[in-house]
Structure formats: C-alpha cells, structure tokens
C-alpha cells in the first residue's frame, strides 16, 4: 500500500532523514519506534506532504506522491493524525468531525457523512456526549480521540498516527490502543509512530526502529520485542543488571 524508497528529508539545510526505505501492506499495523528527535515525526510529515523538503520516492497504491500537496494526498486516502492532537480548538466537536469529512464531500459522497458521524460516535461515545462543546475545552484524551475520529471521517485507506499516547494517562492510552486494534479488525491499515515502544510493538504486526534519521532495525513485532538491543534501548530493561542479580 505504502512504499518508500531512499527517502531523504529535512528542514532547510538540516537533513533529518537519510535513505529511509520501508513499506506498509494493506491490513497491517506497522509501528515506527525511536527516541526523541530520531526523525519519526519528520517521516510522517514527509509522507503526508506537510514537509516539502524531500527527495527519494514515496509510492501510495503504486502512485508517486512525493510531489503532491497534503490536500491531494489526503484525497487519495492517506490521512495523518498529527502529533499533539491539533484539533480545531475554536470549533465544536461536531464541526471538527464534519470538516474531517470534507474529502468525502469532494468525492461526491457527502450523504455518507452523517452515517460516518454516527459510526464515530459509537466508536468514541465520549464524543457524542460532547458534540456541541468546543474542541479546545476537551481533555487531552478526548482531543486525541477527536483527532483520530476526524481523520477517520475521511475514510482513509491508510491512517498514520503520530504519538497518539503522548501526554496521556495510562488508562486512556489503553483505551486508545484498544481502538487502534479495533480499527485493524475492521480492515484499516495503520502506520503508528510511537515513543512508547512496548505498547506499540504489543499491537503491531511489524516494526521499524529508527535512530538519528536511519532505520537501524526492522522485523516482526514479536521479534523486535525480544531483541536484546531493542529491550535495552527502548523497553527500559537493563539486561546487565539482571544478569548480576541472578
């Protein structure tokens, strides 16, 4: 579904990503894990089109998309839930969701929007309760749910999420990951970027480990979970200490 070949990207003269190659197949949950500043958000920015400064090749459903604007890429069915939620805080929850359906409107499927709205409300019952409330007054977890629901309103083929667990309480993180799993069961494809490697690898099929702009490791999620380097660097297990204790 998504295939990236030799992607370089950065801001101005600063090159952040170097020769990234990866792919996401239909129906998968793929996660990208890495520390702060590794280039995870930059990668999603480059795929979604928000970041113009990129070279290499990005193919979405076998079409080249790296020269397209974010509007066109969303229209093709590749949506991003941006980092830090980014809801339209001065607008109501319902208005946020309806704006998410704007590409459906342009695909001449505007009549589906109200059905989709109901689907979102059953997926996120909290949003139905807060329908008329301004998005800026929601709690962090609710805003994250709204941002995910808004992206889903576009009926994307691939949904990319940037750090959905950032700054949220563990209980809410669990809810959100339960929803991501549910999305996959419904046949969606998810590209998940996370710092919380343990939870992300827990629900993913495959994973990539990114460090200082390069992919240093890739494989099945289970293999990565049991990989000693990954455990030391991202899962917080101090293997040497464990050895000493025993």
């Amino acid at each position: 579904m998504l295939r990236i070949k030799n992607l370089d990207a950065g801001y101005g003269k600063l090159k952040v990503l170097r020769r990234i190659s990866m792919h996401v197949s239909a129906g998968e949950i793929v996660t990208i894990i890495g520390a702060n500043g590794a280039g995870k958000t930059t990668l999603l920015g480059a795929i979604s089109g928000l970041l113009r400064n990129r070279t290499g090749e990005i193919l979405f459903e076998k079409k080249v998309i790296q020269h397209l604007s974010p509007e066109k890429i969303v229209f093709m069915g590749c949506s991003l839930v941006p980092e830090g939620r980014q809801v339209f805080s001065t607008m109501s929850v319902k208005e946020n969701l309806l704006l998410g359906a704007y590409v459906q409107h342009r695909r001449d499927r505007r009549h589906d929007a109200h059905q989709d709205l109901d689907r979102m409300y059953s997926l996120f019952p909290r949003l139905r309760e807060r329908e008329q409330q301004l998005a800026g007054t929601l709690s962090g977890g609710e805003q994250q749910m709204l941002a995910i629901a808004r992206a889903l309103m576009a009926k994307p083929k691939l949904i990319m999420m940037d750090e959905p667990s950032m700054g949220l309480a563990p209980l809410i993180v669990r809810d959100i990951f339960a929803i991501i799993r549910k999305l996959r069961e419904e046949g969606n494809t998810v590209l998940l970027v996370e710092q919380n490697a343990k939870v992300a690898l827990g629900i993913a099929d495959r994973g990539y480990v990114i460090e200082t702009g390069r992919i240093i490791l890739q494989g099945q999620a289970d293999d990565l979970l049991s990989n000693r380097d990954v455990q030391r660097a991202y899962l917080g297990r101090d293997l040497d200490a464990e050895v000493k204790l025993s």
Partner: peptide, 14 residues
C-alpha cells in the same frame, strides 16, 4: 475558520 484555527490540521483534512 478551520484554517484560522489550525492551518496544518486543515490541510490534513484536505
């Protein structure tokens, strides 16, 4: 209004 509230998010809505 969406553009004035959050330009990038608006672009991500198409």
């Amino acid at each position: 209004r969406a553009c004035s509230a959050n330009r990038d998010a608006a672009r991500l809505c198409g």
